[in-house]
Simulated scan of single mutants.
Amino acid sequence: MNIKLLLEDFCHYAKYMRAVSPNTINRYRQQVSYFVEVSKTSDISAVNKKMVHSFFLHGRVAKNWSTATYRTYYMTLIVFFRWCMEHEYMEENFVESMILPKQEKSLPKALKKQEAFKLLEVVYNYPYTHRYLRSRNHAIFSMFLYAGLRKNELLNLKLADVDIENFTIFVRKGKGNKDRIIPMSHTLAQSLDRYLTERKKQGKTCPEFFTSSNRNQGFTVSGLKRLTTRIRSASGIDFTIHKLRHTFATLMVEGGCDIYSLSKMMGHSDIKTTTIYLSATAEHLRSQVYKHPLNIRTFV
């Protein structure tokens, strides 16, 4: 049976029966297709243990996969082959015999507080051609730094999801298809309110919260990518959208936010994922070490 045809059936099953997110579906398609390309086989019956092991060795040696990338391919193929076994297209899941390397415990990279302030200043003072761009772009970066949204979560926001009056942001079907509510600070509310005023003046009526400047439709992935490149160049600050999310979490911990609350705001399914931010900020650790009882007495 042709692997590409099976892949489409598998993706259809994952989407409608398991309610897997569109991003995960895209990952399934890309990574299984890459396996077909590298292994030079199109028939599922030709897949064997040696072929699967060679594929992962190719990724590690020729493509220099990180542990995270290796684990992602591992999870994709093990789920796909498991589905193939359930439908009797395969007799053995060859990925299960692979050694899964331990996840690297590197600290998340984040901007320092002064860098975050500078970034927002550059976004606001950039020489735009229209006032609408200034208010929209500042609101976008404020969302990342004051609410910690993921890229797709921001682009998928609807107008009805942002309640400035009650200071809340409703994230629909974030990672893992989970909904969550994020409280909004007064500073973020001011930026969003300024943007909505300009949005109304432009006559934008599309349901998306953030819109294109010259069209009545939602802001796009490519548009956000161009904006990020422009601001990165203008500010001289090396950042990614995900780094801004890490910055939100790190600054929240430095400000005294408890891990449970931060976990809910970040949309983490496991609070262990959030605890890494406790080690990511020296300020937080320094504030904790001052609590040592022996610090109350000095010896001369």
Rank of each mutant, 00 (worst) to 15 (best):
F80K: 05
F55C: 05
F81V: 05
W83G: 07
V47M: 06
M98K: 07
E86G: 14
A46L: 08
F94G: 00
H58A: 12
V47A: 07
H87F: 09
H87S: 10
R82G: 15
E88H: 10
I99M: 09
S54Q: 13
E96A: 04
F55A: 06
K102M: 11
Q103F: 01
A62F: 01
H87R: 13
V61A: 13
V61R: 14
C84F: 00
M51E: 07
M75H: 14
M85R: 12
I99L: 10
Y70S: 09
P101W: 04
R71S: 12
E88I: 02
H87V: 11
M98Q: 12
C84D: 06
P101I: 02
F94V: 06
E88R: 06
F56H: 10
F55M: 05
T76Q: 12
S54C: 12
T69C: 11
Y74E: 11
R71D: 11
F80V: 04
N93I: 00
F94A: 01
A46D: 11
T69A: 13
T67L: 06
M85G: 11
S97D: 10
F56L: 08
L77K: 07
T67N: 15
G59Q: 10
M75Q: 14
L100F: 12
Y73H: 15
F56T: 07
E86I: 00
Y70N: 11
V79C: 12
A68E: 14
W65I: 08
K49Y: 01
A68D: 11
Q103V: 05
V47L: 02
T67W: 00
N48M: 01
Y89E: 12
N64F: 02
K63A: 02
M85L: 08
F56I: 10
M51D: 05
T67Y: 07
E91A: 08
V61I: 15
E96D: 02
N64H: 15
C84H: 02
R60G: 04
V52C: 09
H53Y: 13
S66L: 01
V52W: 03
K49M: 08
T69I: 06
E86Y: 02
E92N: 04
K49L: 04
F80M: 08
Y70G: 09
M51V: 10
F81Y: 09
K50S: 09
V79M: 12
A62G: 01
V79P: 02
R82F: 02
A46E: 14
E96M: 05
A68P: 00
S54T: 13
V79K: 12
